[in-house]
Nucleic acid binder design. Structure first.
Length: 734
DNA sequence: CATACTGCTGTTTTT
DNA sequence: CAGCAGTATG
């Protein structure tokens, strides 16, 4: 069995899996089999009796990575991972807090807030503190608070501040904390900090977990932030063995608090840590790897690692200089079309990666026009849609009447005659007496401080929630949700509207009930109600609900979301100074290096082919911008890059061009033929032509047929022009 | 209370 | 340009 686990590993992998030292640091390059090593090591530790499933804790950053790890361990061991703690930092912290809510100082049914909830709550707080929102943007306060929490710093630990900014931020932070505690709300950073403090304040509890987990494995170690590292340090008792896997060259989340230094800190904090490197890449051609290695060598202070491969050289990296973003998209679509024209290739082999989401639109339009199916990753996620969050707000109130964030959201959605003035009264009383909005409302109704109209409206709302909660007590989760959708008036609100958007919202709400029907609470949540468990799940795994994941689509995503994935054919679009590296990162050297790592991540996603594109001009924020090609392009070895000129594209029409709507492919030659002629001969896409005034050019496109046909021709002298074929007097240049 | 208009702001994203 | 949030208006 042990042989089975280790038999298909290379030498360093084998060593990483079977290493004996107490603490192990594995520097694993892109495509070197990092997850594989981690999974095999866990299996090995169990099979050899070094550990029991019960004593293993493996932590990742995303739910997806956690699920993959669990699945692969199960497949390898051929039995379920019962007893093992495999999950995300946040997931595991949540589990601890649910189990030990009392020790953590939380109400039993505490709820998790996502960043959107958090943002609203902070905005609310800034308003009630009577601060000028333009001077104190909620975004900034949110950033401040999360940063402090990521560093493990509570308001009281900050002491007196000497400038207005920090003083005000601290005040907001303090008020925010108070409100959260009162409402039983926990944000993402709070999950980690609370779990940390809970251990710190309960030594016997900590000792229990230290004794239990003797094998702790951490994936993507370069992405850990301050509190995550501190949490791991705390967990490590005398008999804890650490395995940390990471790649400093793939650290791309510094901007949200990830500390690449944690890797070095680890070796300092745990003397005797055995460091080993996985440098053989099983993914990419040597061309791609050389390009990636050369690029990343421009960064300073690396831990040092050079990927190599036994694989073949492969194609050079193609570089296309587009005139503008339209032309860039056009070129990419053409390359995809010709790739897909071969029966061996699939659309899903292709990924278009870009720096920022705004770039996707032009690409999308071009793909749409060419009739190529695509899928965009990242974007609105199911549990983050407005209508879903509204529904969740009702559910949250049902579970916990003091959830102020939920109260704010549900109280007038759909509108029920509760105006801003009434709410202001409720809020100010809640603030004065330090009670929840719910309690404040109850008080105000009883003390008759509200106008009779407002009082009835608000009273009906309280009644609605209370009866709803009562009626739902004995119902199954999805029945509760259906009941809520009906009685809250949410569903009706959207059903009344006739437009398509509202229709989609109705469907989403129905899908919510569906999701609830599929939901089974995880083991640690069985002690709470299914509703509370479901709400936690919604916040913690906002998931994309795997839309058409299995379809054969071109994949589009930002470079950030491409980390961890691989594709045979990768496009890196928008390789321009100011875009990538992004304008905002050009000031500091550190941020520029992170951009470079991002580019490194992009390049190392590719198995076989890379096409990079940049546009000479691009419409950005409504303005025409000129950008120089990205410095990252010039940081690649010259001999590995092939500049694609309009000319060069044209010299191999069959390979690089594919018929577009106005062209027909000649079956025999596989050459695109326009529905018009020059000198009596059919025009080919990519054909070289001569114009009396503009000189030599290349046929790029054709619209219409026969006499009316218009040809798009790219001339070296004037760029691309649309010409009516019958008037242009074009001369064919073979 | 809903709609229209205005002004502002524009990286990356998981939990 | 375009999407959002917040305000003015009916």
């Amino acid at each position: 069995m042990t042989e089975l686990i280790t038999q298909h590993l290379n030498e360093p992998q084998h060593e990483a899996v079977t290493a004996e030292p107490k603490h192990l640091l594995i520097l694993a390059g892109a495509g070197s089999g990092k997850t594989r090593v981690l999974v095999h090591r866990i299996a090995y530790l169990i099979e050899t009796g070094h550990a029991t499933p019960y004593s293993i804790l493996a932590v990742t950053f995303t739910n997806k990575a956690a699920k993959e790890m669990r699945d692969r361990i199960e497949a390898l061991l051929n039995r379920p991972t019962q007893g093992m703690w495999v999950g995300t930092f946040h997931g595991l912290a949540h589990r601890l807090l649910r189990t030990h809510w009392k020790e953590a100082g939380l109400p039993e049914h505490f709820q998790i807030m996502d960043s959107d909830d958090q943002h609203r709550l902070i905005r609310r707080i800034i308003k009630t503190m009577q601060l000028d929102e333009t001077k104190w943007p909620p975004k900034q306060a949110q950033w401040f608070i999360n940063n402090k929490k990521d560093e493990g710093i509570r308001p009281h630990a900050m002491g007196d501040q000497d400038d207005v900014f920090n003083t005000t931020m601290l005040q907001i932070y303090e008020t925010y904390e108070k409100t959260c505690q009162q409402s039983g709300l926990v944000d993402f950073a709070e999950l980690l900090l609370r779990a940390y403090e809970m251990w710190q304040n309960n030594p016997e509890l900590l000792a229990h977990y230290q004794a239990r987990f003797n094998q702790v494995l951490v994936d993507e170690f370069q992405d850990t932030n301050g509190i995550q590292y501190a949490w791991l340090r705390l967990l490590a008792g005398d008999n804890t063995h650490f395995t940390a896997v990471g790649d400093d060259d793939q650290s791309i989340y510094g901007w949200r608090g990830a500390k690449i230094e944690n890797i070095q800190r680890f070796t300092r904090d745990y003397p005797g840590t055995y460091t080993l490197r996985l440098e053989q890449n099983y993914r990419s051609t040597s061309t791609i790897l050389n390009a990636a290695n050369t690029l990343i060598s421009h960064n300073t202070g690396r831990l040092g690692k050079e990927l190599w491969t036994a694989g073949e050289k492969g194609d050079p990296i193609a570089l296309y200089a587009a005139f503008n973003e339209q032309d860039e998209a056009r070129y990419i679509v053409e390359r995809i079309s010709s790739w897909v024209a071969s029966p061996d290739n699939k659309r899903s082999d292709v990924a278009i990666l870009y720096r920022s989401n705004a770039q996707s639109r032009v690409l999308e339009e071009a793909l749409l026009k060419a009739g190529i199916p695509y899928r965009i990753y990242g974007g609105q996620r199911f549990f983050e849609r407005a209508e879903i969050k509204d529904a969740l707000a009702y559910l949250r109130l049902m579970a916990n009447r003091h959830d102020d964030a939920a109260f704010e959201r549900a109280v007038n959605m759909p509108t029920r005659g509760i105006g801003g003035i009434t709410l202001d009264i409720i809020r100010s009383q809640a603030r004065e007496r330090e009670i929840s909005l719910w309690q404040s409302t109850e008080n105000l109704i009883n003390s008759e401080h509200l106008s009779s109209r407002a009082s009835t409206a608000v009273g009906q709302f309280l009644e609605l929630i209370s009866t709803l909660a009562r009626h739902c007590e004995d119902l199954a989760l999805e029945e509760q949700i259906e009941k809520m959708l009906q009685t809250s008036g949410l569903l009706q609100h959207y059903q009344q509207q006739r437009n398509e958007k509202a229709q989609a919202r109705v469907e989403n709400l129905e899908e919510l009930a569906n999701a609830a029907a599929q939901f089974t609470p995880p083991e640690e949540d069985t002690r709470t109600t299914p509703l509370v468990a479901f709400l936690s799940h919604a916040a913690l795994e906002a998931g994309e609900m795997q839309a058409s994941e299995y379809d054969d689509c071109v994949q589009m995503m930002t470079l950030h979301s491409a980390k961890g994935l691989e594709f045979p054919f990768v496009f890196l679009a928008g390789m321009e100074e100011g875009l990538f590296p992004h304008q905002m990162s050009l000031q500091e050297e550190g941020r520029l290096e992170e951009e470079r790592r991002l580019c490194y991540v992009g390049i190392t996603r590719a198995r076989k082919k890379i096409v990079m594109t940049h546009a000479e001009t691009r419409r950005l924020h409504g303005r025409e911008m000129m950008h120089a090609p990205s410095r990252f392009i010039s940081e690649l070895p010259n001999e590995l890059v092939e500049h694609v000129r309009a000319k060069a594209v044209v010299s191999r029409p069959s390979a690089d061009f594919h018929p577009r709507p106005s062209f027909k492919t000649d079956a025999a030659t596989n050459i695109a033929v326009a529905a018009t002629t020059i000198d009596g001969a059919p025009v080919q896409l990519g054909q070289r032509v001569k114009h009396a005034k503009f000189g030599e050019g290349v046929v790029l496109n054709c619209e219409g047929q026969g006499e009316q046909a218009r040809l798009q021709v790219y001339f070296e002298s004037v760029g691309s022009k649309w010409l009516v074929a019958s008037f242009a007097k074009l001369e064919s240049l073979s």
